[in-house]
Computed example of a mutant assay.
Amino acid sequence: MSRLWLLIAAVLMLASCGSRTSSVAPPSPPIGQPVQPGETAASLAVARARLITHPKFGDSDPHPWDGRTPWSYPIHGIDVSRWQGDIDWHRAKAAGISFAYLKATEGGDLADPKFRDHWRGARRAGVKRGAYHYFYFCRPAAEQARWFIRHVPRDSAALPHVLDMEWTPHSRTCTKRPSGSKIRAEADRFLDILEAHYGRRPVLYTTVDFYRDTGIGRLRGTEFWLRSVADHPHVTYPGALWRFWQYTGTGRVPGIEGNVDLNVFGGGPERWLRWSGQI
Results as ranks from 00 to 15, higher is better:
residue 41 A to H: 08
residue 83 W to E: 08
residue 105 T to D: 03
residue 192 D to M: 02
residue 168 T to V: 03
residue 172 R to N: 10
residue 127 V to D: 03
residue 191 L to E: 01
residue 248 T to Q: 14
residue 117 D to W: 04
residue 263 N to P: 03
residue 217 G to E: 06
residue 21 T to M: 09
residue 50 R to M: 12
residue 88 D to Y: 09
residue 172 R to W: 11
residue 65 W to F: 03
residue 276 S to W: 07
residue 81 S to Q: 02
residue 6 L to Q: 11
residue 188 D to W: 05
residue 225 W to C: 00
residue 57 F to C: 10
residue 84 Q to G: 09
residue 109 D to Q: 07
residue 97 I to T: 05
residue 222 T to H: 01
residue 263 N to V: 04
residue 55 P to Y: 09
residue 183 I to S: 14
residue 89 W to R: 13
residue 202 P to L: 08
residue 102 L to A: 05
residue 243 R to Y: 04
residue 260 V to T: 10
residue 81 S to V: 02
residue 8 I to E: 06
residue 112 D to I: 02
residue 193 I to P: 01
residue 28 S to H: 13
residue 138 C to E: 05
residue 75 I to P: 00
residue 246 Q to Y: 01
residue 142 A to N: 10
residue 252 R to S: 15
residue 4 L to Q: 07
residue 176 K to A: 10
residue 217 G to K: 02
residue 117 D to P: 01
residue 190 F to S: 04
residue 30 P to S: 12
residue 210 F to W: 13
residue 21 T to S: 10
residue 228 S to P: 01
residue 266 G to W: 00
residue 59 D to A: 15
residue 146 R to T: 07
residue 17 C to Q: 07
residue 263 N to T: 03
residue 110 L to A: 06
residue 263 N to Q: 12
residue 235 V to Y: 09
residue 128 K to I: 15
residue 122 A to L: 09
residue 202 P to M: 12
residue 178 P to V: 06
residue 84 Q to D: 09
residue 256 I to W: 01
residue 197 H to G: 05
residue 277 G to P: 04
residue 69 T to Q: 11
residue 74 P to S: 10
residue 243 R to F: 11
residue 110 L to C: 03
residue 174 C to N: 05
residue 189 R to I: 09
residue 267 G to W: 00
residue 156 S to K: 14
residue 134 Y to T: 04
residue 26 P to D: 08
residue 125 A to E: 11
residue 162 V to T: 09
residue 104 A to S: 14
residue 23 S to H: 05
residue 257 E to M: 06
residue 157 A to C: 07
residue 206 T to K: 01
residue 156 S to I: 10
residue 145 A to E: 04
residue 148 F to Y: 15
residue 239 G to V: 06
residue 171 S to Q: 02
residue 133 H to W: 01
residue 77 G to F: 01
residue 155 D to I: 14
residue 265 F to I: 00
residue 110 L to F: 07
residue 11 V to P: 01
residue 124 R to N: 08
residue 20 R to W: 04
residue 56 K to R: 15
residue 173 T to C: 04
residue 62 P to E: 14
residue 68 R to M: 13
residue 72 S to W: 06
residue 115 F to T: 08
residue 47 A to D: 13
residue 136 Y to F: 11
residue 4 L to S: 05
residue 30 P to L: 07
residue 94 A to F: 08
residue 249 G to N: 14
residue 254 P to K: 10
residue 267 G to S: 01
residue 245 W to I: 00
residue 95 A to P: 01
residue 274 R to L: 12
residue 133 H to K: 09
residue 26 P to E: 11
residue 207 T to R: 11
residue 54 H to W: 10
residue 193 I to S: 02
residue 214 T to C: 11
residue 138 C to F: 06
residue 178 P to A: 13
residue 94 A to D: 13
residue 146 R to A: 14
residue 3 R to E: 15
residue 229 V to K: 06
residue 128 K to E: 14
residue 75 I to F: 02
residue 155 D to M: 11
residue 102 L to R: 02
residue 124 R to T: 07
residue 5 W to K: 13
residue 87 I to Q: 02
residue 87 I to G: 09
residue 37 P to L: 12
residue 12 L to K: 00
residue 174 C to Q: 06
residue 165 M to N: 05
residue 218 R to V: 13
residue 106 E to I: 02
residue 247 Y to K: 00
residue 3 R to W: 08
residue 241 L to G: 15
residue 205 Y to Q: 02
residue 174 C to T: 06
residue 58 G to D: 12
residue 19 S to M: 10
residue 69 T to N: 09
residue 231 D to K: 13
residue 88 D to Q: 13
residue 49 A to R: 08
